[in-house]
Write a protein that binds this DNA or RNA. Structure first.
Lengths: 111, 111
DNA sequence: CTGATCTACAACCATTCGGTTATATGTTAG
DNA sequence: CTAACATATAACCGAATGGTTGTAGATCAG
């Protein structure tokens, strides 16, 4: 288990990367099966260059990695980054639970 | 339990809203304790207007709600939206688990 | 070898973003 | 009533975003 903590700027990048439907779809695809950039590009109504840029955004967020294989470069999803975002949200939910617990305690103390 | 499914454009907005450290901090604060916009603004090195805009972004993403109380409007975090994002990430992780399960099955079939 | 394919990057463009200042309106305190 | 405070909104600005076209280098197929 990789327990990677995201820095604030990494968190910025990863949420920004996920704030686009095309990029979310790319992540879904490459989590299921690694895929070349041009193979990805065929699925979207935009140029190869646009998809190439989307992959670059995902890569700089750490959500995908690219490995060159011959003339194509294969993109694969990084599940550890997805889990890191997951944990960042867990932290938010924990704040809420702490608050609820505290409110309950105050209510219990003073009837 | 509110099992709210996010539309693609809602998902865009909620991830975009979380892609900024100030906005994430505001969400943390108002999940713990509701807070007026100007009280929030005192915590950040920027104008009231800037913080007001950040709150508007969070509100349009559904991550916070505002309720007017006298001359101030109180901002509170909406934990259900946080949970909805959480579930969106669960869906990504599930793709990964399905893939791993399928790979294991293929390996088991052919020794 | 040659042509097709894939990646990469530069330059450009319209729009959005994240901040500012200024102004108007509503609400409370004294 | 008046002054102080809180919110809201408009106008502006520089930087980043998301797309385009064009060009060039690498690799593979025939």
């Amino acid at each position: 288990m990789v327990v990677d903590q995201l820095s604030p700027s990494e968190t910025d990048r990863v949420f920004h990367a996920l704030a686009d439907a095309t990029r979310r779809d790319i992540v879904r695809k490459v989590l299921v099966e690694e895929c070349s950039v041009s193979a990805l590009a065929r699925h979207y109504p935009m140029s190869f260059t646009a998809v190439h840029k989307h992959v670059a955004v995902l890569e700089s967020a750490g959500l995908v990695t690219k490995v060159r294989q011959g003339r194509e470069s294969l993109v694969r999803g990084d599940i550890d980054r997805v889990r890191a975002v997951h944990r960042a949200l867990d932290a938010l939910e924990q704040l809420w639970r702490d608050r609820v617990a505290q409110m309950e305690q105050v209510l219990a103390e003073d009837p």
